[in-house]
């Protein structure tokens, strides 16, 4: 188990957004999180790299073990944690810098490489997201001029450059068209050989297609967590069944 969550409660001020969440995610597996809007999927994901710390007045209790370490421990080194647990956002958010600088950002921040070595990391990262052939002669191009799909791939490459273990993806395809979505899904299948992925999605077909395990959230609670095939064919909970058959909207 690469991620193990025990009795997680999360509060925005007085509002409890996550209620007693328990979940285990396997290494080199894609774990999908589904549920209606506002049920706490993004909040949960942002607990795993402690991005919620940036929001004032939030409070987290319980335990989250990432590779055996409780990251809710106040002594956790956030720089190391976020190097290990990378995040892809809903809207592609490349920096307004060149393609090269976008990918070099992480290695530079973590002092991983310089010069030739850095160029090699940039090449490998772009290859990993299947962008190298397209962009190898355009490394100085401003990343904001790329297509949305290429931007999202670049954001994934940017993470890969710091060699994380876990990729958190919050609706990574929701800004993309169906063809781009399919290609990014194919990319996820390749990436899962080297990384453990947790993906939030609104799209149940997507969850069914890409993931090995699926969790269903409702109103801050993890209602059901199981092998994806079982969630979609034989859910144990009525509410899960209602959701996947479209009765929640």
């Amino acid at each position: 188990m690469i991620v193990k969550v025990n009795k997680l409660d999360f509060y925005y001020g007085k509002f409890q957004a996550l209620i007693d969440v328990n979940l285990e995610a396997k290494k080199n597996e894609i774990t999908a999180l589904i549920g209606p809007s506002g049920c706490g999927k993004s909040t949960f994901l942002r607990c795993l790299n402690r991005m919620n710390d940036l929001i004032e007045g939030t409070r987290t209790t319980g335990e989250i073990f990432v590779e055996g370490e409780n990251i809710l421990d106040p002594n956790t080194d956030l720089v190391k944690l976020r190097k290990k647990v990378g995040m892809v956002f809903q809207r592609p958010n490349p920096f307004p810098l060149s393609v090269f600088e976008n990918i070099a950002f992480g290695p530079r921040v973590h002092h991983l490489a310089k010069g030739k070595e850095l160029e090699e990391i940039v090449r490998q990262s772009l290859e990993a997201v299947l962008l190298w052939d397209k962009l190898k002669d355009q490394l100085s191009r401003n990343a904001l001029t790329l297509s949305l799909e290429a931007q999202q791939r670049l954001c994934i490459a940017r993470l890969i450059a710091v060699k994380p273990d876990i990729l958190l993806m919050d609706e990574p395809c929701s800004a993309l068209d169906p063809v781009s979505t399919q290609r990014v899904e194919e990319l996820m299948q390749i990436l899962k050989q080297d990384y453990s992925i947790l993906i939030v999605t609104h799209n149940m077909q997507q969850a069914a297609r890409v993931s090995g395990f699926t969790g269903f959230f409702l109103l801050g609670k993890l209602i059901e967590f199981d092998i994806t095939g079982r969630i979609f064919t034989a859910p144990r909970d009525r509410r899960t069944e209602d959701y996947i058959t479209g009765r929640y909207g």
Partner: peptide, 18 residues
């Protein structure tokens, strides 16, 4: 400057100053 730039940087493990 859009917040998402800074979030992206922090999520990569950059410090506030970086």
């Amino acid at each position: 400057v859009p917040r998402s730039y800074k979030e992206g940087a922090l999520a990569l493990g950059a410090t506030h100053w970086q």
